[in-house]
């Protein structure tokens, strides 16, 4: 059943996937940037500052999705003790931390011209900050604990505890009065963003997701080689 995630099988197509993504990445990036910065219209209220949304929103989504993925894989890994999954969660964590921080920074750069403040301790922004702290704890657990089994166990538990924070972030804008506006794109697929602005948003999301896939594959490959190298005498 778990043969599909066997490193020796995966290794073969990691190489192919990396090459494939590299070949289409820059074309897609240029298309997405053209739409985001040139072709899409300014907002009726925010003017051109709406363009910050095209990096802010995908970053926030990726930050949330990465942590959800880490937490779910951690649950499986914790219950069935599958070591391979820990290699994957370890490879996702830096990407998630990067995009969570980017979401906070770009959000702050958007908040200054629109709200009139860089920072507000409202529920959405604070819970995003808590998410970045969970990422840091997860990464630190792997870095600081020498015993690999112990490190995996502690990191998995941190991810599982942090899972509670995800619905809090998602629904913070509905549960409490916040400075942050409610979600524009609902879970049922309806959106209050005009199609001419939704297109660049989705294109940027696609480009950033491809970037994440690229980093994830490279990191996972590094982890496999690291393990093989350590066990070279025993293979």
């Amino acid at each position: 059943m778990f043969d599909l995630i066997n490193p020796s099988r995966i290794f073969n197509w990691i190489e192919k996937l990396i090459n494939f993504i590299n070949s289409i990445f820059f074309i897609l990036l240029i298309i997405a940037l053209t739409f985001a910065l040139v072709l899409s219209p300014p907002d009726y209220l925010q003017g051109d500052s709406v363009r910050i949304m095209y990096v802010h929103v995908p970053s926030a989504w990726i930050g949330l999705a990465s942590f959800t993925a880490i937490a779910l894989l951690s649950i499986i890994s914790f219950i069935f003790k599958i070591k391979n999954l820990n290699l994957i969660t370890k490879s996702i964590a830096p990407i998630g931390l990067l995009f969570t921080c980017l979401a906070i920074i770009t959000g702050s750069l958007w908040g200054q011209p629109t709200w009139g403040t860089w920072w507000a301790w409202d529920a959405r922004i604070t819970s995003m900050l808590v998410l970045s702290i969970f990422y840091i704890l997860f990464i630190l657990a792997h870095k600081l604990i020498d015993n690999k089994d112990r490190a995996n166990k502690v990191a998995n538990l941190i991810a599982i505890i942090g899972l509670i924070n995800i619905p809090v972030i998602r629904y913070s804008v509905d549960w409490w009065n916040t400075l942050h506006q409610p979600s524009s794109i609902k879970l049922d697929g309806t959106s209050s963003i005009h199609p001419s602005m939704l297109l660049p948003l989705m294109l940027m999301l696609l480009v950033l997701l491809l970037y994440c896939a690229l980093i994830l594959l490279m990191k996972y490959k590094t982890e496999i080689i690291r393990i093989k190298k350590k066990n070279i005498k025993r293979i």
């Binding site: 300014p42 907002d43 403040t117 005009h194």
Partner: peptide, 17 residues
């Protein structure tokens, strides 16, 4: 002593408005 603007979740081009 401080005013912040709260934005709503609607985004659209000016012509449409």
């Amino acid at each position: 002593d401080r005013i912040l603007a709260k934005h709503d979740e609607k985004y659209m081009p000016p012509e449409l408005k």
